Simulated scan of single mutants.
Amino acid sequence: MSSVDNRAVVDLLGVLAYAELTAFDHLAEDARLAPTLAGRAALARMAAAEIGHHERLAARLTELGADPTAAMTPFVAALDAFHEITRPRTWLEGLVKAYVGDGLAADFYREIAAFLPDPDRALILDVLADTGHADFAVREVRAAIAVHRSVAGRLALWGRRLVGEAITQSQAVIAERDQLAQLIIQGTGDLAGVGRLVERITAAHTERMRTLGLNP
């Protein structure tokens, strides 16, 4: 593997560290929308896992000689804007957002992580691994659709909105840091490679929508 600009590594770890911190915030907030105590507890456990991921990423940034706060700061505006414009109004919208929206973002970061050497690649793939939210979200959403079929159409529209906003967020993140853009171009080889990367992410999104029982 060719040498990777250390600034790109710090940028990627920085955006992920902030993404995990915000995931903790929003999972804890969404837990209050849960219709059952079991659902509330499930999201609280997932939130705890996210803050653990944040701490691991922050520790790695420190090992690299970077200040975690400084590494996260360039990405605050883009990620906060995404969460503000996609704030769920219901329990089900929150679950779809975590499964579809956060899943698409995780796919994007996994693709970039593949261009890094270990131990950073292994760390990123580990913190992006599912914390149990996927299966939980699928069960809850499919059960709700089985009872009230009418919610499927509304949630499908919500899912399409999420993917559009998530793509915009990803573009904003890349635009913030030249090193990340260069890492992607270098890793994929050329613009055609970037196109194939986008196709893989889009295909994974379509499959998630089907898994939820929603039309992509």
Results as ranks from 00 to 15, higher is better:
F24R: 06
A38P: 00
H148F: 11
D130T: 05
R60H: 11
P68E: 10
R177Q: 13
H133I: 14
L13V: 03
L37R: 12
L64H: 00
I201H: 04
D102G: 07
R177C: 03
L155G: 02
P68V: 02
H133L: 15
I167E: 04
D30S: 11
E29L: 13
E55G: 10
E93I: 01
D120T: 11
L162W: 00
T131R: 14
W91T: 07
E176V: 11
A78N: 03
I167P: 00
N215I: 12
L12E: 06
Q186A: 15
T131W: 08
G189L: 03
L57H: 05
I51G: 01
P119G: 06
E50P: 04
M1D: 12
D190C: 02
A31G: 14
L128T: 05
T73Y: 10
I145D: 09
L33H: 11
L197K: 06
A113C: 07
L116G: 06
V151S: 05
R161K: 13
R56Y: 02
S150M: 09
D102F: 08
L57R: 01
V10W: 00
M1R: 10
E111R: 09
E199I: 05
T211M: 12
L116R: 05
E165K: 04
A146L: 12
R56Q: 14
G94M: 09
S150E: 15
N215L: 12
G189Q: 00
V147P: 01
V151R: 07
A144N: 07
D178H: 11
L123V: 02
V4Y: 07
A78V: 08
E20H: 07
S170C: 11
F136Q: 03
T90G: 11
R89M: 09
A204F: 00
L21V: 12
A146P: 01
E55S: 15
E111Y: 06
A19D: 13
P35L: 09
M209R: 04
H53G: 05
D30G: 03
I85V: 15
D67Y: 05
F115L: 09
V173Q: 01
V198R: 09
V100Y: 04
P88I: 02
M1V: 11
G65T: 02
P74W: 06
E63S: 10
L21R: 14
L95A: 01
F82S: 00
P88M: 08
I112D: 12
L212A: 02
A192C: 01
D118F: 06
D67T: 06
L64W: 03
L13A: 03
I167V: 14
A152V: 04
L57Q: 03
A78R: 00
R210C: 03
K97A: 05
G94N: 10
R208S: 01
A204S: 13
E29N: 08
E140W: 04
P119F: 09
H83V: 07
A172V: 01
H205M: 03
F75P: 03
